[in-house]
Design a binder for these strands. Sequence first.
DNA 1: CTCCAGGGAGCCT
DNA 2: AGGCTCCATGGA
Length: 285
Amino acid sequence: MVDFINLEDVPFSLEKTLECGQTFSWNKIKEEDTEKYYTVRSGGVLKVWQDGDKLFYTNQGDEVDPIDVLRLDDKLDDIYESMNKDRFIERTIAANYGLRIVRDDFFPCLISYITSSQMQIPRIKRIQKDIRINYGASLDFDREYYQFPSPESLAEVPENELRDLNAGYRAGYIKRTSEMIRDGVVDPGEIRRLNYEEAKDKLMILPGVGEKVADCVLLFSLDFLESFPIDTWIRKIVKKEYNGKYSKNYSELSENMRNYFGKYAGYAQEYLFHYGRTCMDPDSP
DNA sequence: CTCCAGGGAGCCT
DNA sequence: AGGCTCCATGGA
């Protein structure tokens, strides 16, 4: 059954939100000449497509709510007002109007960002998909879909099998992190109750999780909208456009940007990131 | 062929 | 604390 959400007065671009590189948990398919996206969660399958101010969706299991996973209840105009500190960020807002931060499931988000180090985005996505197909439970919806495996399941996978999925040297990180999540050493529910600094320190206990991966997981799955992840792209863009606030040191640079953009710095980060990748050459002077 | 990719760990000072 | 090197592997 197809339902829809009325997006009048709700700024939203499905395409920008899911194509900007923040999530590896969504896939695009074409059905009857329409570009659609689907995600498979612990709660079931959700398929969505947008036509102007209508967001159509079908899902299996009411717990996979598009309003929740696409953060449609974020007050985007208020967020823009809060983070709109200068002409450059204003330009990125104009170029990416309607882009929202996603709310992904914690475990697949964590494993994907551990995988992401020294890798290109299409390959990260491919590895998550291969993990799902090889080790995830299947769900029967309009066809067969695959959930991301539980920490319990993934912890049992031999390291060399993960290497065979082209995870490379990250295979050991994936296995050991899965074991620690399984054993409750790090618990996403507990992390949500901590403040930003404590939550980040806790995540960084996990092997393969440094500052950048921790910031991504906090932002894209644990609702820490002030988190400002710094990758090679952001580093170039900030150095070029915000030179006075630039620092080689990750912690210092990240703190500078959080102080500057405020409590929605994570939104600012994603707008800068996507603008930098699509609208400018960060290497040019 | 060489170089680099949404970094992090381990070692060094 | 801060700096350096290596880590697999695909794609340009």
